[in-house]
Design a protein around this nucleic acid. Structure first.
Length: 980
RNA sequence: GCCCCUGUAGACCAAUCGGCAGAGUCGAUGGAUUCAAAAUCCAUACAGUGUGGGUUCGAAUCCCACCGGGGGCACCA
C-alpha cells in the first residue's frame, strides 16, 4: 500500500529533478492557477458582440453530483475524468467545447442533518459544494467555471418555479399531439369550438366550476391519488423511494397506500412520444429498453361484459349495473374466457356483490372453495378485502398462491352468451388496465393457476404444438392456430394469433361491446413532498376557501412574484407520527412559517376575487425538479430575463438536420438514472419544446453509461469488515489474505464507509499527483466497464509519467535532454502509429488502449535514445498526445520545451499516412489451420505472388510432401492457409 | 420466473470484417544499482479464451445448450 512514508520523493537519494509526487503537486497547482487566471476553458456564447466561433460546437456533460457530506471517493470522478479527456481532445481538434459542472443540491441528507443539528441546510449544502469544488479542481478538469450552477441557487430555482408555472399553465391537445397554453383551451371552450366531455354548457358553469374543468386538463394538477405515505418520516414518497418489501428506503419504516391530495405531473400524456422518440436518440439499447419497459405500452382491446346470468335477479347487480370493462392483450382468446376477476379495490365490487349465494349452474352445491366459508358473498368479499389490506407488499409479492372469492355475480361472454362467474382476487391489480380481467386459463398461466385452485373450467383456444399436453398441465401462451373459437357470426378457428385478434376486435366493435385500446404501465408523476429543503411551489389558495365550498383551487402566482423564496423556519422536520399510524396526515415544515404562508395580493390567475388573502402551497418539489432542466441553464447561467436565451439554445442544442432531435452532444453518467431522471427531464424538455421555448425535441442526443469503480472489501471470521488498506496478500492463509495475521475473506462491492474500503482522490493526488491518478483511472479499462480499484497498481501509471519526464528533462540537472536530431525511420513509424491509434481511441473513449499506445511509444524512445538527446520532433507530439490524459505534466513539459502558450488549443498531432504503410509484410503460413511457417513478402505483392511464395516455402514443401494442396486461402495482409 | 449484459495469464485488461491469442499495467522470478533498504532501471516466465456441441479452410469472435458473475423487471392481463 502506498503511504506517505514510501511515496516517491519522500526519501533521500532521489535525483533532484525526478518527477515525484512533490514535483507533480507543484506543477499541478501552478497550472490549475494558470488555467483559472487565464480563463483558459471559458467559452462565450455567440451573440451580437460575439460571432459564433469557427469550430463546430460540442456540448459535453456529466450527470451532476449530489454534494454529500462524505466527499468524493475515487469512484466518483471516473466519468468526470473521462469527459475531460474527451473535451480536451476535441478542443485540440478544433471543436468549440462547452463543459462545466454543477450541483444537484436539494434533497434529504442536508435536511436530516439540519433536523439533527439545527444547522440551516443551506449552510451544510454550501460547505459541501465548496469541498466538492476543491476536490474537483485538484483533478484539473477543463471546466468553464462561469457556467457552474447549483439547483439551490435562488437564481436557479426561480426558473425551476417558472418552468413549473409553464407546465401548470398548459394542457395536452391529444388531437394535434402536443401541449398548448391552457388559455387556448379556455378560449375554445368559451367560444364553443370545443365542448365539455360531459356535455355541460361552459357558460352555465360557475367560475370555480370552470376553473376545476381547466385544472382537470393541466399538465401539473392536484389529485386525490393513492400515494406512499410514511408516517414515521412524515412525508409521502415516490414509488422508487419505497423498497420491495413496502418500507421506506430511508429508515426502513412502514409505508402505507393512502389517498392524499397531491401534486401530479401528467407525464402519461407524453407516453407515446417518450417511447417513440427513443428511436431518434443515440443511447445504449439497454437504457432504451428500460425506458420502453417502464412506459410499458401494450396494444390490446377493451371488452365489455354485461352483468347478468341466470341468477342475476338474486345477485346484487340491479338492471342499472354498468357492464364490466376488461382490458386484454389477447382478445383472440375471448372464446376461452371462463370467469372474470376484479381487483379487490375495483369500484364495481360493491354493486356486484350479491346478498346471498346463487345456486350453481349445475344445480349442485356451490363449490366450497368459491365462498371462502362465508355465509354470504357480502361477508366473503368483505373478509377477503380485509385480509388483502392486511397483507404487506412483501407478502403479496412472495405468496403467489392464488386467492380470491366469488362475488355471487355472473357476467355474459359477448361472443357466446356463456355465463361467467365474477371473482374478486388480488392477482388482479387496480393500477393497471381497468382493474378487471377476463380469465383465460388455457392461455394464461396465472389464470390457469387460479382456475386449478378454484375448480374452474379450462378451455384451450390456441392449438398447442405436438407433445405440449404431455408435459403436464399448464397454459399455452405461444403462437398457433385458433381452435374452439366460433359462433354463428364469426369463426376464428384456424387463424393465427394476430389475424384472430384483428378479426375479433372488428367483430366486437361492430357489436359495440369492445374496441382496440392502448395501455401503459407509466403512471402520472407524484410531484410534491412534505419536506423543507426543496423548491417551493409558486402557487397559493384562497385563504377562506372557494365561494362554492368545493375543494380549493390552486392559483398560479404571476411570474413577477418569482422567486418564491424558501422561508426560514425553526424546525426543519416534517411532522412525524408513530410508524404504524396509517391514518395520520402529512404536514409540511413550511406550514409552520405562518408569516410566509399568509399573504394578500391581487392575483391575475384569480381575477374574480381581486385583492384578497391567500395561503401558500406548503409542499415542496421533489429532488428531480432541478435536474430536469439544469443542462439548459448551463447554456445561459446569468440571464436574468429568461431561463435560456432562444438563440443560445438553438446554437448549442438545436437540431442539425431535419429529423435530428438536437440536444446535448454527449451526456455521461451512471446507468442508475436510466429511467427516472432521464424520463422526467425528457418530459419537461418536450413540454418546453411544445410551448416553443426550445428548438430541440430531446434533451440528450447521445447518452453514455460509464462503469463503476468498485472495490475489494474484507471480512474477518465473524463477518465484520476490516480496513481494506491494512489487508495483506498471504498465500499461506486459506483465504489468501490476512489482516493483523488473521485470515480474512475477500469480497467485491461498492466503495463505501460501511465496507471500510474507501479510497479518496485526495489521498491519491497527495501520494502520486492528479495526473497519475487520472492516468490510472483511464488505463484500467474501457469507459463503459466497471473495474475494481487497486491502489497498489497506481504506481505503474506513475512510473510511466516518470519515464516521459525523463525523456525530456535531465533528472540530475533539470536541463532539457532533447535534441534537434532527425528521428530515425523506425522512430517515426512508431510515432505515427501511436498518433494514428490515439486519434481513433480517444474519441471512442477507449482510453485504456490509448494509454497502452503511449506507453509503447515512450518505451521505444527510452530504448532508442538511452543516453538522452531524444529528438524534439518526436517528443513534442508525444507531449501533445499525452495532454488530454495528463494535462498538467504535459503543459509543464510543453512550456519547458519553449512554448509560451497553453497547449489546450494546440492542434492535435496528425499521422503521416506514408509512415503507416509497411514496406513488407510477414505472412504466417498455416497448414490445416496451424501455423507452420512464415514468409516475408513486399507489401505490394499480389495475391498470386503471396500464394506462390507460400507454396515455395521449404517447410511447406516438406509438409506437403509432393501432394497437391486441396485449397489455398490467401487473406491479403493477414495470412495464408493451405488445406491438404 | 422473464429480459439484458458479461466470462481471455495470479489480478486488471488488449486482440478492425471470423485470420499468428498479447498492446499495456500490477504482481511473481532473476539481475543492475545500494553498506543496506526504498525508489529507479533491465530481463524472464506464465493462459489457449467458463463447459460441451455446431458452422467454417480457419472461432476468443458466429449459432445452440449448460454453468458462473453483474444488472433490470416482476401476478402489467
Amino acid at each position: 500500500m502506498a503511504s506517505r512514508a514510501d511515496s516517491p520523493g519522500g526519501a533521500s537519494g532521489v535525483p533532484p529533478y525526478r518527477y515525484t509526487a512533490a514535483l507533480a503537486n507543484d506543477i499541478e497547482r501552478r497550472w490549475q492557477d494558470h488555467w483559472e487566471s487565464a480563463d483558459t476553458f471559458a467559452v462565450t456564447n455567440p451573440g451580437p458582440d460575439h460571432p459564433a466561433p469557427a469550430g463546430e460546437k460540442f456540448y459535453l456533460m456529466d450527470m451532476f453530483p449530489y454534494p454529500s457530506g462524505a466527499g468524493l471517493h475515487v469512484g466518483h470522478p471516473l466519468g468526470f475524468i473521462g469527459t475531460d479527456v474527451l473535451g480536451r481532445f476535441l478542443r485540440m481538434s478544433g471543436r468549440t467545447v462547452l463543459h462545466t459542472m454543477g450541483f444537484d443540491a436539494f434533497g434529504l441528507p442536508a435536511e436530516q442533518y439540519a433536523v439533527q443539528t439545527g444547522t440551516h441546510p443551506r449552510t451544510t449544502t454550501e460547505a459541501n459544494i465548496a469541498r466538492y469544488r476543491a476536490q474537483i479542481r485538484q483533478l484539473g478538469l477543463a471546466h468553464d467555471q462561469h457556467r457552474s450552477v447549483s439547483t439551490t441557487d435562488v437564481d436557479f430555482y426561480r426558473w425551476t418555479q417558472w418552468i413549473f408555472l409553464r407546465i401548470h399553465g398548459s394542457w395536452y391537445d391529444t388531437e394535434i399531439g402536443r401541449a398548448r397554453p391552457i388559455t387556448e383551451l379556455e378560449d375554445e371552450l368559451e367560444k364553443g369550438i370545443r365542448g365539455l366531455p360531459d356535455g355541460r354548457d361552459w357558460s352555465a358553469l360557475s367560475r370555480p366550476e370552470q376553473d376545476r374543468v381547466l385544472d382537470d386538463h393541466r399538465l401539473a394538477y392536484l389529485a386525490d391519488a393513492p400515494v406512499n405515505w410514511c408516517p414515521a418520516l412524515g412525508t409521502v414518497l415516490s414509488n422508487e423511494e419505497v423498497t420491495a418489501d413496502g418500507r421506506s428506503e430511508r429508515g426502513n419504516f412502514p409505508v402505507f397506500r393512502r389517498n392524499l391530495r397531491q401534486w401530479m405531473m401528467r407525464i402519461t400524456a407524453y407516453a407515446d412520444r417518450l417511447a417513440d422518440d427513443l428511436d431518434g436518440v443515440d443511447w445504449p439499447d439497454s437504457v432504451k429498453t428500460m425506458q420502453r419497459n417502464w412506459i410499458g405500452r401494450s396494444q390490446g382491446a377493451q371488452v365489455r361484459f354485461a352483468v347478468s346470468g341466470q341468477d342475476a335477479q338474486r345477485s346484487g347487480a340491479g338492471p342499472s349495473t354498468p357492464p364490466i370493462e376488461v382490458f386484454t392483450t389477447r382478445p383472440d382468446t375471448l372464446f376461452g374466457a371462463t370467469y372474470l376477476v376484479l381487483a379487490p379495490e375495483h369500484p364495481l365490487v360493491d354493486a356486484l356483490t350479491a346478498d346471498a349465494w346463487p345456486s350453481p349452474l349445475t344445480g349442485e352445491e356451490l363449490d366450497g372453495r368459491w365462498t371462502g366459508g362465508a355465509a354470504s358473498p357480502t361477508e366473503a368479499v368483505a373478509a377477503y378485502r380485509r385480509a388483502v389490506a392486511q397483507r404487506s407488499e412483501l407478502e403479496r409479492q412472495e405468496a403467489r398462491d392464488k386467492t380470491g372469492v366469488f362475488t355471487g355475480a355472473w357476467a355474459t361472454n359477448p361472443v357466446n352468451g356463456e355465463p361467467l362467474p365474477v371473482f374478486v382476487a388480488d392477482y388482479v391489480l387496480m393500477g393497471y388496465g381497468t382493474g378487471a380481467i377476463m380469465a383465460v386459463p388455457g392461455q394464461d398461466q396465472r389464470d390457469w393457476d387460479f382456475a386449478t385452485v378454484f375448480g374452474l373450467p379450462i378451455r384451450r383456444t390456441v392449438a398447442p404444438p405436438e407433445g405440449f399436453e404431455g408435459s403436464g398441465g399448464q397454459a399455452y401462451v405461444g403462437a398457433g392456430p385458433a381452435i374452439n373459437s366460433a359462433n354463428d357470426e364469426i369463426s376464428l378457428d384456424g387463424l393465427e394469433v394476430d389475424a384472430a385478434k384483428t378479426a375479433i376486435v372488428a367483430w366486437l366493435a361492430g357489436k359495440g361491446t369492445g374496441e382496440p385500446v392502448v395501455q401503459y404501465k407509466l403512471r402520472d408523476w407524484l410531484f410534491s413532498r412534505q419536506r423543507y429543503w426543496g423548491e417551493p411551489f409558486p402557487v397559493a389558495y384562497a385563504a377562506d376557501g372557494e365561494t362554492d365550498g368545493g375543494p380549493s383551487i390552486p392559483r398560479a402566482l404571476p411570474d413577477g412574484d418569482l422567486p418564491v423564496l424558501l422561508p426560514d423556519v425553526e424546525d426543519y422536520a416534517p411532522k412525524s407520527f408513530a410508524p404504524d399510524d396509517r391514518d395520520s396526515s402529512p404536514e409540511s415544515p413550511l406550514a409552520r412559517a405562518t408569516d410566509w404562508v399568509a399573504f394578500a395580493e391581487d392575483l391575475p390567475s384569480d381575477p374574480e376575487r381581486g385583492f384578497a388573502e391567500y395561503v401558500r402551497e406548503t409542499n415542496t418539489m421533489p429532488q428531480w425538479a432541478g435536474s430536469c432542466w439544469y443542462y439548459l441553464r448551463y447554456l445561459d447561467p446569468h440571464n436574468s430575463e429568461r431561463f435560456v436565451d432562444p438563440d443560445v439554445e438553438r446554437y448549442w442544442l438545436g437540431p442539425r438536420a431535419p429529423g435530428d432531435p438536437g440536444g446535448v452532444d454527449l451526456y455521461v453518467g451512471g446507468v442508475e438514472h436510466a429511467v427516472l431522471h432521464l424520463l422526467y427531464s425528457r418530459f419537461w424538455h418536450k413540454v418546453l419544446f411544445d410551448l416553443g421555448y426550445v428548438t430541440s425535441s430531446e434533451p440528450f442526443r447521445r447518452l453514455f453509461n460509464q462503469g463503476y469503480v468498485q472495490a475489494w472489501a474484507y471480512t474477518d471470521a465473524r463477518g465484520v469488515y476490516v480496513p481494506a488498506e491494512e489487508v495483506v496478500e498471504d498465500a499461506a492463509s486459506a483465504t489468501g489474505f490476512t489482516w493483523n495475521g488473521e485470515p480474512v475473506r475477500q469480497e467485491y462491492g461498492k466503495m463505501g464507509k460501511s465496507l471500510r474500503n474507501v479510497v479518496t482522490p485526495d489521498e491519491m493526488c497527495e501520494a502520486y499527483g492528479a495526473d497519475t491518478f487520472r492516468l490510472y483511472e483511464m488505463s484500467t479499462g474501457p469507459m463503459e466497464a466497471s473495474r475494481p480499484w487497486s491502489t497498489r497498481d497506481v504506481v505503474g501509471s506513475h512510473r510511466f509519467l516518470q519515464r516521459v519526464w525523463r525523456l525530456v528533462i535531465d533528472e540530475e540537472t533539470g536541463e532539457l535532454r532533447v535534441s534537434d536530431a532527425e528521428p530515425d525511420r523506425d522512430t517515426l513509424v512508431a510515432l505515427h502509429r501511436s498518433i494514428d491509434g490515439v486519434r481513433s481511441d480517444l474519441p471512442a473513449m477507449h482510453y485504456n488502449t490509448a494509454v497502452a499506445k503511449l506507453i509503447e511509444l515512450a518505451n521505444h524512445l527510452t530504448k532508442t535514445y538511452p543516453a538522452g538527446g531524444t529528438p524534439r520532433a518526436v517528443v513534442e507530439p508525444l507531449v501533445l498526445l499525452l495532454s488530454p490524459l495528463c494535462p498538467h505534466v504535459a503543459e509543464e513539459l510543453w512550456s519547458r520545451l519553449g512554448h509560451p502558450d497553453t497547449l489546450a488549443y494546440e492542434p492535435f498531432p496528425e499521422p503521416d499516412p506514408s509512415l503507416l504503410v509497411e514496406d513488407s509484410v510477414e505472412y504466417p503460413i498455416q497448414v490445416n489451420g496451424k501455423v507452420r511457417s512464415r514468409i516475408t513478402v513486399p507489401a505490394a505483392a499480389g495475391e498470386d505472388d503471396v500464394r506462390g511464395a507460400a507454396l515455395g516455402d521449404p517447410k511447406v514443401v516438406e509438409l506437403l510432401a509432393g501432394a497437391e494442396p486441396r485449397k489455398v486461402i490467401v487473406v491479403p495482409g493477414r495470412l495464408v492457409n493451405i488445406v491438404r
